[in-house]
Amino acid sequence: MSYSLSAACCWIILAAILAALPSRDNHWRRAYVLMVLGAPILVWVYLADGIWVGLLITLAVVSVFRWPVRYLLVWIKRQIAG
């Protein structure tokens, strides 16, 4: 396993641990931290392991960020609709 995939797996484990801990703000602060940490790792995976592995890791990231992705899609839809 490459270092980039190892880092991505560690990121997913960290996300699962942070999701299990109680939060007063519905985990938004933790989500922001995970986004800042996860973006370079995701780029690293794409560069080191190729597009197909990168797409699989992207699906894993989207499954972790279900609600932020949903809010982003609703916002984009509102911007397009006017």
Results as ranks from 00 to 15, higher is better:
Val69Gln: 02
Leu21Gly: 04
Ala7Ile: 03
Ala8Tyr: 00
Gly50Gln: 08
Asn26Leu: 08
Leu47Ile: 12
Arg30Tyr: 10
Leu5Glu: 13
Ala31Gly: 12
Leu42Arg: 03
Ile41Asn: 02
Cys9Glu: 13
Tyr46Arg: 06
Leu59Cys: 07
Arg24Phe: 03
Tyr71Asp: 09
Leu73Met: 15
Ile51Gly: 04
Leu59His: 03
Ile17Arg: 07
Ala15Met: 00
Ala31Arg: 07
Ser2Asn: 12
Ser4Cys: 15
Leu72Lys: 13
Leu18Asp: 04
Gln79Asp: 03
Gly38Phe: 02
Ala15Trp: 03
Val69Cys: 01
Ser23Pro: 06
Pro22Gly: 12
Ala81Leu: 05
Pro40Cys: 11
Ser23Asp: 10
Ile80Gln: 10
Gly38Ser: 05
Ser23Gln: 11
Pro40Val: 13
Leu42Lys: 04
Ile51Asn: 00
Met1Gly: 14
Lys77Trp: 13
Leu18Gly: 01
Val45His: 00
Val74Gly: 00
Ile80Glu: 05
Ser63Tyr: 06
Val33Glu: 01
Leu18Thr: 09
Leu59Tyr: 04
Ser2Asp: 09
Thr58Met: 06
Arg30Trp: 08
Trp52Ile: 14
Leu56Lys: 10
Trp44Asp: 11
Ser2Thr: 15
Ala60Val: 02
Gly38Asn: 02
Ala7Pro: 00
Arg24Met: 07
Ala15Thr: 09
Leu47His: 09
Val45Ala: 08
Ser23Asn: 13
Leu34Ser: 10
Leu47Thr: 11
